[in-house]
């Protein structure tokens, strides 16, 4: 589902990723970990076509990144749900509209939008907050809204960038369970985190990044 082959990415003269090679199979749940600045976010950005690698080849869900037309990117992004590190919630829209955005962009009928958004909010236990605005919610609630927005489009891949960054242990555990449930339904889940609690004893594959190099791979 996700294949990196000898991928490097440079920002000016600094290497964010250096000769990274790995694969994530369809339906797998895996983690990428490493200290801040190790290249985790860059790696995810390449997967959701926000950054182009400078070297190597990337294949996402059968699409070779180097052969991709820029105009096809929106359609491919619709197969990928992303939980952004900075949430990217729209402050001037309520929770419903924030989640619905994913579907409205695809031109889905408003009746169907309503049903699917409410289903997604039910999964993250925030159905009762659909009329609230993001600034009225706690960090944990905002994170769950972002997860609802990422899964409402029924993506084949779910990416999460530091999904438990500023959350307490209980909320983080709840989010980890949510990812497990989403993966159980067949979605490929790939999480970038430095929170060991998120992957400890999950039996999942862990990729370790260090200064842009893939330092190792293990099972938790």
């Amino acid at each position: 589902m996700i294949h990196f082959n000898d991928v490097s990415k440079f920002y000016e003269n600094n290497a964010a990723l250096r000769n990274v090679t790995f694969s994530i199979e369809k339906g797998e749940m895996a983690f990428v970990t490493g200290p801040s600045g190790s290249g985790k976010s860059t790696l995810l950005k390449i997967i959701y076509f926000s950054e182009k690698p400078d070297q190597g080849s990337v294949n996402i869900a059968g699409w070779e990144l180097s052969k991709l037309k820029e105009s096809s990117i929106p359609f491919l992004r619709r197969n990928i749900g992303v939980v952004f590190q900075d949430f990217r919630l729209l402050d001037n829209r309520n929770v419903f509209d924030n989640v619905a955005m994913t579907l409205r962009i695809r031109g889905i009928d408003e009746e169907e939008v309503k049903d699917r958004v409410m289903d997604a909010l039910k999964i993250v236990n925030l159905r009762h907050k659909s009329d609230s605005f993001p600034r009225m919610l706690s960090g944990g609630e905002q994170q769950r809204i972002v997860i609802a927005r990422a899964i409402v489009g029924e993506p084949t891949i779910l990416l999460a960038d530091e999904p438990t960054g500023n959350l307490d242990a209980d909320t983080a555990a709840g989010i980890a369970r949510m990812f497990k449930d989403i993966n159980a339904k067949g979605t490929t889940v790939f999480v970038a985190t430095h929170n060991k609690e998120l992957y400890r004893n999950t039996g999942r594959r862990i990729l370790r990044l260090d200064s842009g190099n893939l330092a190792g791979e293990e099972l938790s």
Partner: peptide, 16 residues
């Protein structure tokens, strides 16, 4: 700008 950036990341086309 931020809102448009989010739209793009969620799969919005140029037309949208």
């Amino acid at each position: 700008k931020d809102e448009i950036e989010t739209f793009k990341l969620l799969g919005a086309t140029r037309g949208f």
